[in-house]
Design a protein around this nucleic acid. Structure first.
Lengths: 224, 224
DNA sequence: TGCCCTTTACTTGTATGGAAGTATGGTATA
DNA sequence: TATACCATACTTCCATACAAGTAAAGGGCA
């Protein structure tokens, strides 16, 4: 999530504004469809409109905002199409990664550790902690397969899904999710590629049933 | 490639500048590592720096340029890592799409037609036409599977690969590529999911052998 | 001759003013 | 009362000026 950029690039004000808004959107603080205003935000943080404007442009590139010339800028609604597309891609890619992992003697300790974190977070009802650990679990799988760059690419696609999750997490019990994670890990430890692939696909298909429910509960947050 | 935007959104100047540069970069007119200058381009097309600057920001978001504050803006070099990552993702996703297609009675006429186009383009040595048709062939597969949004996502990831292809196409004979395309189509027509998946994977793994050769021939265009 | 420091030119970053376009509410008119 | 028109208050877009920082060339000095 917080992609620790290795090279310490000099960070501009516009960059910081972008990162700040990006985070707020993904966490759901800025709800889909909400209006953004260059002048409002500029005043709010004591800057001119220019860096704010440039932040907006980058948010639009991220697919998180929509700039309508001469009309206004709005937080993008969650595109069901984009969520389903990202889900399909994740299923295809992560099931391949799981197969690769099952065929080698990989280090699965990080994934193991995250499962414990998720147990605690679920017991304590700490939604944010659970989501963060969930991400790290999947990331760890990519890293164990030696595909850090792949995970970075997936993360870009995942942004729409992430906003969705912040809503769904408050609705669903996550013990089922943890069980699915454990099934994946067990299959990998057993070096059973077929079982691992099946577990990954089953896990990621969970969203197919959740998405319509969430969308029905928040119809104004979604677009097809 | 030229994603015909369905809604006729009002296009700003900055948007046009971005599209123009985007195309030039992907076609290789602006080589990796080349320097871009806000003022130069602004003068060149009779505008102020502002819209050009905003175009640069979006190119950076696309991963095609790098803005180094107070230092300069450069066309991004081709990241071997990004190419390999996109390739792995394509293989995983497109092999899944092929399986989906093999399991249904899909319309494969567009793919068939593109094969003829590729034959002609290869015979005439028309590199640009071949690349365009190659893209449409793969896009047609996604469309036939009812996954237009997935192809859009893949296209974003493909940008690094596309620049590579404009170089490789001048080096390699493409009849082998056409044969691989035909193998995919034949398997789909036979409704043989296993064969289709194998054909897709074999086709997309071709790049694993081509990338090192291209990189060796143009070492200054690449970064790891 | 070689090294260090200063100056200068050039880069992108930010601030501000006005231009162009849109939406809205009020007003005159039928 | 309903409708068409117009003034007004917004929005983002573009142009311009200046600020901050970088890099490189040139001069002074050992």
């Amino acid at each position: 999530m917080t992609d620790a950029t290795l090279i310490a690039r000099p960070v501009t004000t516009a960059q910081q504004v972008h990162d700040w808004l990006h985070q707020r959107i993904l966490r759901g603080d800025l709800p889909p469809g909400a209006r953004l205003s260059e002048t409002d935000i500029a005043e709010q943080i004591g800057l001119s409109r220019q860096p704010v404007r440039e932040a907006f442009i980058r948010l639009a590139s991220d697919g998180l905002a929509e700039v309508r010339p001469q009309r206004g800028t709005y937080i993008g609604k969650i595109s069901a199409r984009a969520v389903l597309s990202a889900r399909l891609i994740r299923e295809a890619v992560e099931s391949d990664l799981a197969r690769m992992l099952a065929d080698r003697d990989a280090d699965l300790s990080t994934m193991e550790a995250e499962l414990s974190v998720q147990d605690r977070a679920n017991a304590q009802g700490d939604v944010a902690a659970f989501i963060a650990s969930d991400d790290r679990f999947h990331q760890a799988m990519a890293l164990a397969a030696g595909q850090a760059a792949v995970w970075q690419d997936l993360e870009r696609l995942k942004s729409q899904m992430n906003r969705l999750r912040h809503m769904s997490m408050r609705v669903f019990d996550r013990s089922e999710t943890i069980g699915q994670h454990r099934a994946i890990l067990t299959a990998l430890q057993a070096r059973d590629a077929d079982a691992a692939e099946a577990a990954v696909r089953a896990h990621l298909r969970q969203m197919l049933t959740e998405l319509p429910q969430i969308a029905a509960a928040h119809p104004d947050y979604f677009t097809d």
